[in-house]
């Protein structure tokens, strides 16, 4: 292999990395370009805060933003304690074989297709919610966030466990040597040391919950309204894109889905930056304590 061809291959590697990185920026450019009439002259803020009434010429995505936040936040409210409990079970409470088996099951759960969750949601969860809460059709914020909680929990559990395991053993042994229990060790050493990892896990899970299309689309009911209670139907930004896409082309109404896309893009950017900061903090944590 000559030095020349060595250079060529190296350039090819760079080109591949550059193209992949460029696409990320390119996607944003495309979304803005195609949604352009809606973004000019400060109209973007207006769109984010006004209602959706295409017949009156108002293409605001405010209801969808509220719907997205309501469903994903509620999902986090269910998923966080559940995941924390499971992570404690795996890392602290149970030992040996059982802990390993539960971990394997959780890992396998990350491989379950979203559409399968949605499908089971329709035929199993919705009738349940309808009967238990007597909540109309059962297609509501509550159902969607319950199912989303199941979707995001495995990722959160694995990240929690991972950040617990990163805490150096010697710290914990210090507590045990003083006559502390494993729970005390967890509460006083492991948990305080692993908060950056917990932030990363929660942020990632929130990103998945906000970005998921299928579950909300299949079981949240998709009504364009600001949900007043957890039993109201709601529409997320992601399902709005899917639904309007199926309906129409070329109109201003259609352009609004690019506003949804841009909002999701920006939201993801913020989450990624938060994760970066938290990971940076984690790098420091190990040394200081």
């Amino acid at each position: 292999m000559t030095a020349g061809s060595e250079r060529v291959v190296e350039r090819l590697f760079f080109a591949a990395a550059f193209v992949s990185a460029f696409v990320t920026v390119f996607i944003f450019g495309f979304l803005v370009y195609y949604g352009l009439p809606l973004f000019s002259g400060g109209r973007f803020i207006e769109i984010l805060s006004s209602p959706w009434a295409p017949h009156q010429g108002s293409f605001g995505i405010y209801p969808m933003i509220v719907g997205t936040l309501a469903i994903s936040m509620l999902a986090m409210v269910f998923a966080f304690p559940l995941s924390m409990g499971c992570a404690i079970l795996i890392s602290v409470v149970s030992r040996g074989r059982l802990s390993k088996v539960i971990r394997k099951v959780v890992e396998a759960m990350t491989g379950i297709p979203t559409v399968v969750y949605g499908f089971v949601g329709i035929f199993l969860l919705i009738p349940l919610v309808r009967n238990v809460f007597d909540a109309g059709s059962g297609m509501c914020v509550l159902s969607a966030s319950l199912m989303l909680a199941v979707l995001v929990s495995p990722t959160m559990i694995l990240f929690f466990c991972d950040s617990f395991d990163r805490v150096p053993r010697s710290y914990g042994h210090a507590v045990l040597a003083l006559g502390g229990t494993r729970i005390q060790q967890f509460l006083h050493v492991t948990l305080p040391c692993s908060w950056p990892g917990i932030v990363v896990a929660v942020t990632l899970a929130l990103g998945r919950a906000v970005g998921d299309t299928l579950i909300a689309l299949m079981i949240a009911g998709n009504a364009v309204q600001v949900p007043g209670s957890v039993f109201d139907s709601a529409r997320t930004l992601t399902s709005h894109i899917a639904l309007v896409f199926a309906a129409d082309n070329e109109s201003l109404e259609f352009k609004a889905i690019f506003a949804c896309g841009v909002s999701l893009y920006l939201f993801t950017t913020i989450l990624v930056l938060i994760i970066r900061l938290a990971v940076h903090e984690r790098g420091k944590c190990g040394q200081v304590r």
Partner: peptide, 26 residues
């Protein structure tokens, strides 16, 4: 920079990628 952009790409909701695919088609 590359790491940041790839993290971002990994975090984008798949419907946004789909929307990009569609606008690419247009």
């Amino acid at each position: 920079i590359f790491n940041l952009l790839f993290d971002l790409l990994a975090g984008l909701p798949s419907i946004v990628i789909g929307l990009f695919g569609f606008s690419l088609t247009l």
